[in-house]
Computed example of a mutant assay.
Amino acid sequence: MNVKSVTILGVVAALAVAGTWAVLQSSPQGIAADKRGQTVFPGLISKANDVTAIAIRDNDTTFTVERRDNGFFDKASGYPTKPQAFRDLVAGAIGLAYEEGKTADPTRYGDLGLAPPGNAEKSGRQVTFTNAKGDVLADIIVGNRDNTVGGARGGTFVRFPKEPQTWLVRGEMRVPVPHTAWFEINLVNLNKDALAKLELSGGGLDDVTMVSEKKGADLTLQSPPEGRTPDSGKVMRLSFMVDPLSFQDVRKPSAEPKPDARKLIATGQNGIKITVTSVGELADGWVRIGVESTSDDSKKQADELKPKVDGFEFKLSKNDSDMLAWGMKDFTQEPKS
């Protein structure tokens, strides 16, 4: 993070505190609490720029986002994350202020969205901020929102790990969940005007080729089986796989793809070539994505896309992974009488 980014984070944090203070001074007061109006993490504003990692436990899954010199990254995969999501979480924590104490009965935690792991719908999300040394700067379990406390930002139910007491606090911590909410999941758009060819091959399944003769023309299925006609709806559905080409999870490379792995090759009118190769079982949806430029017109686009896909494996949606297994019978139908 550069100096400018650090300064921005400090300003956002300060504004968050100021906004919370103003709301507390101007809104009606409900049930009194000894801590009403006190900042939940009073020392965090001076340490905002020391936060180098945020760990999030969502039900029974934990993932960590790290701040490094050149950006923000998912610790497990090394994939870049949205910088603003990291900054918003820190600023949100700084802006929290106590409103009133709630239940200390564990059997009622679920009503506030603060149940322990094991109940996905009612489980709280534990958010832990640490510095470069691994010291914990803030640790809190975030539950449901509550809009009855007044003010534009409303309130949130929270609890601290290992403490039974729950609280309603003013302010909001925007916790990006699921995991992929941290990522820009749309890698590239090859829409109808941009797409020249789609090819499916390998995996012991049918080879399928679709071609758009000119920019903006519909894809045409090549060499359909005798006695069957192309199903234009299915042909169009395959094109949606690259409009946009997106993912639901990301990881470091695992085993190498099989020599005859199932592949989808999408070629753009400008010469860009994107190869989606299945890794492991086709039904699992994990793929590698390769990019190459076959013309001067596509070089810039390929250069921008390569860093986003090189060295990673991506999980496709079930709809997309299912389409990788389609053959000629899936893309054709019996002639209508």
Rank of each mutant, 00 (worst) to 15 (best):
R159K: 15
G143W: 05
N119G: 02
V175G: 04
L114Q: 02
S123R: 01
I140H: 02
R125H: 09
H179Y: 12
K192W: 08
D218T: 05
N144C: 00
N186Y: 10
M173H: 02
D139M: 04
L198Q: 08
V158I: 14
H179D: 09
K215Q: 15
R170A: 13
A181P: 01
V127W: 01
V211C: 03
I140E: 04
G143H: 01
A181K: 10
P116W: 11
P164T: 15
V177Q: 11
S212A: 15
R159V: 10
F157A: 07
L168D: 06
E121S: 06
V208R: 01
W182K: 03
P116C: 06
V208C: 11
F160K: 04
V149D: 05
G204S: 13
K122E: 14
D146E: 09
L137W: 04
S201Y: 10
L219K: 03
G134P: 00
T128Q: 09
N119H: 07
T128K: 06
D146P: 00
G203N: 08
G134I: 02
Q165F: 10
N191T: 14
D207W: 07
I140W: 04
A196G: 11
F129Y: 08
A115T: 02
M173Q: 05
G124M: 08
R170P: 00
G118C: 06
I140M: 07
S201K: 14
R159F: 08
P178S: 13
